[in-house]
Every structure is written in C-alpha cells, then in structure tokens.
Design a protein around this nucleic acid. Sequence first.
DNA 1: TTAGGGTTAG
Length: 609
Amino acid sequence: MPSLALAALRSAGRHRKPAACRQLHAHLLKTGVLSRSPFPSALLGSYANSGLLFDAHHLFDEFPYRDAVLYSSYLSALSHSDRPSQVLCHFRRMVSVDAVPPDGFIFATLVKTCSRLGSLRLGKQVHAQFLLSSFHEDDVVKSSLVDMYSKCGAVDDARKVFETIPVKNHVCWTAMLSGYASNGRRAEALELFSQMPQRDLIAWTALLSGFLQSGDSFSAVRLFVEMRRGEVEIDDAFVLSTVVGASSDLAALQLGRQLHGLVLTLGYESSMILGNALVDMYAKCSDINSARAVFEGLALRDVISWTTMVVGEAQHGRAEDAFNLYDQMVRAGVKPNEVTFTGLIYACSHAGLVQKGRYMFDSMEQEHGISPTLQHYTCLLDLLSRSGHLAEAENVIDSMPYVPDEATWGALLSACKKHGDTLMSIRVADKLLGLTPKDPSTYILLSNTYAAAGKWDCVSRVRRLMVDMEIKKQPGYSWIDLGKESRLFIAGEVPHSMRQEIIRLLNELTIEMKKRGYVPDTTSVMHNLEEDEKEQQLFLHSERLAVAFGLLKSVPGKTIRVVKNLRVCVDCHNVLKLISGITAREIVVRDANRFHHFEGGKCSCGDFW
DNA sequence: TTAGGGTTAG
C-alpha cells in the first residue's frame, strides 16, 4: 500500500494536481506513514511542483527532524521558485542550526540557485567548496556547474568543467551546447553539436534557442528547417515556441503563418505557451488583428497572454484597446506584473495620455504592490517629456531611486529636441556624453543636438569619440516580405534591376504629394549638406524604396508591410501618410520603436512617436 | 531528494 501512495504522490506532483497532493497528505497522516522515508521529501516535492509552495513551507517547518534528504527537496523547491535567493538563507540554517553537511544533491541545488540568480561570484564560491568536499567527483554537480557557468556567460569555465566529466550524458552535452549558442559562440556550438553522440529534441531546441538568445534568429530558423528534414520527432511544444519567437524577431509574417499551420497540424493548439508565442508573433509581424484572433481563441490565459496582447495593442497605437484588455484582465482575476505596467505606461506615452499614465504609474505600487523599476521611471519620463512636460520629466530623474542610464537620458534628450528646448538639451547631452554611451543612435542624437545649437567643438568631440570607440552609424534598412518574394533595401541604394521603375514611381508620387502641400522636412538629415542634397538623401530612405517596391510588386489592394531597423524619420512619416492616401493602400511599418499603420493619409500613431 | 530545451518589456 505505501508504494501505491508513493506512486500516487509522484503522479500528483508531475501532473500538478494540488488537490490530490492535499488528499494524499491527509491519507499519509491517517495511516501513520508520513514520517517514514521517502514520504516527507516526496510530499514536499509534489506540493512544490503543484504550485503549493506555502504548503511545502509549512510541511518543512513543522517537521520534527530535518535531514539532508528533506533539505534537498526543500532547497530544490525554493531554487525553482520565483525567489531562489531563499535557498541561501535555508542553506545557512541547514549547516548552522541543524548541523547537516551538504551532500551531492545539495551542491547541485546550490549551483542551480547561483545559475538562477545569475551570480557568477557565488557560483565560483560554491564550486570551490564542492572541490574541497568528498563529493568532488559527482557528475550531476559537474553538469550543473557547466550549466551555471554557461548561463553566467563564463563559457570557457563551463568547458573546463565539461572536460572533467568522464562519461558525458545528454544533460551535460546540452548544457555546454546551450552555453556556446546563447553566448554567440556559433562555430563552437555547431562543432559541439556535430560531435554529440545523439542529438535529441532537447539538444536541437537548446541550439535553436541559443541562437535566438544571442540575436541570430536567421540561424535559428535555418536550423529548424534542417531539423524538419531529419528524423527528429516533435513531441513537445518547446521547439515550436522557440522558432515562433524567431519569426517574431524577424517580423517574418509568412514564416509565422506557416508555423501556425504546423502547430495546428501537430496538434499543439491547446498549448498556452505556444499560443502566447503566436499572439506575440502576429503582433510583432504587424498583423495585430490576427494576434487578437489567436488571443481570443486561447482556452487558458495567464498573465503573459494578457500582457503580450496589451503590449501588442500599445505598440500598434491602440491605447484604448490596451486599457480595455487590462480591465478585462483584472476582472478575470489575473494579477498584472511589472511587464504589464511597462506596456500600459508605454500605451499612454504613445497616445499622449499624460494623466492616465501618471495614474497607472502610481497605481502600480499603491494598488498592486509592484515597485517601479528604472524602466518604469524611464517610461514615465518618456510620457511626460514627449508631451512637453520637460521640467516635470527632469524632476523624475532627480527624485527616482535609481541612477539614470543611457535610455533615460536619451528619452529626455529626444523630447528636448522635439520641443526645441536648446538650453535643456545641451545640459542633458552633457550628462549623456559623460556616460560614454554604447548605442550608435545616441551619438547621432548627441551630434545633432550640438549641431543644432551651433556647438561645433562638441560636435567634433562626439565624432572623435565615435572614431575612437569604433562606433559606426548603423545604415538604415527596410525589409519587405511579399510571400513569394522578399527584399532588403538599404538607404541610398536602389537595386539596379528595378532602378528605373522605383525612381519613376517615387517621382510621380512626389509630384502628387507636392500638389497636396508636401514640403520636405530635412531636419533629420545630419550632414552639413546643401538643401537639395538633403532632399535627395530623404528621397532614397530605405522605407520609401521598400514601399515603392511593394506598390509595384504586390497584389493590388493588399496591405504593404515593411520592417525598418531604425526609427522612421519625420519626413518619411509625412511621405508615407500621403502615399497611403494617394494610392488608397494600407501601409504598415514596424520601426525600431513601434508600429505605424498608414491609411487614408493618416497614421495610427497620431504623429506621436 | 540533484543537472539540459519554451511564452510578455528593454
């Protein structure tokens, strides 16, 4: 009978059945076997797995004796929880109060905790203790060390530990593989992958996800195609979620649609996580209506489902929809998290809803107990400064409990420029320059600010810094995907094969635009050029080339979707509005910051971006 | 009782 109870307990934990765990707890108490090993640790583990961390705490605290096995279960449950740092307090208690020395199980859990905390320093301390212990040959601990070093970015240290494992199993191979791939060490990842004795689905997923994490979404998609050609059976939703994430990143709508089809074919449409990934994919691929349709079809929605949709609506400029969703979410009893509020304040910021944004910022802490992070302050500052409340925005920086970073000062500086406050923009630019920024766009912003104020000595200082730090202005490029054909356009470079057609169309459109009052706005061109040269530069901005290509090549009447790596400039924004009116076509542009839906001469952002 | 792969912002 006890073995049946044990099997039931493990099953309840594995299948996350909290009610069953509690019933079994009562049963174990009644039959008097609760204190008999391995019931205490098994029950504790099942409680933790089923999300009943409070019951697990209670069981642990009330237990008459706490040995290494019980500690092991408990620390493991804490290491997987959302507060892994609690492991450390209980570890100290284990050693000092209960005088239990750590064994291999405990070491593995400690290393896992360091990995979750992202603390390399602590990880090295635990590693040193492990080497001094009598468990120093434990391969499971070594595997966890490989994973910890990989996740903390110390890939070479991971490799050193990896080499000391005499018989390598799937787990340590995958940990090492993931380390190389997620830290951008592509060649070594592929080399290791080719050496693996067996490549299971987890290894493929790790490699694919590693590429995605290191920003190489193209490789991730290529790898998925290669995987599909082989004999690996997709029997869980992990790899699909990852590759759907890659198509979001690439804004590859056609690919995303195909993957959605595959998800349905393979029967994973009920996976919430995959559903969340699809919602995000459609939103990021500019098809917000499909995102909404997938969201409405989700059988179960967690905070990530709601937040993904809220953020999607916000980035598409549909602030009212974002807030309606938020109200529904709260009514449905789902507790918002810090990301939800980033999305909501962002929605206000991009719709000029200053009062509402201030209110959301306050309610985050007062009504939901979420302390604002630096990012929330930056969002608030962005909202205030964009709307012209520059002094109040600067005041946010002075009063917030964080040191402002490049993004914070950058947001304020953009707003100063927009509102023509030269004195303040110089003051902010000086602060920003003192931070030695990393982002090329910050240098462009600084250079433009100083140039506009005629501070040429500062302009040359910024230029020198760019040369010294080998910072290059990122060329603007736009990408258009017409299904059968996709094309990349770089600013100033018209593809030879279509040169005449594209230039002719843009010229014709310019004539019509001028009839409708278009005057080129060259303020965003930074070089000291003559006015007509500046206009020529604008004329060849990549998004215009891509839209022209779309107008020439796509099915008439179909929405034209373009992705741009930088922000759309003021002049292109005016031009795209006009083109959408002249050609009666909907044009959707995803730029570095948000989405613009141009239709009938207007943009969904209300010129507020 | 311990170790590998998945979804939201930036």
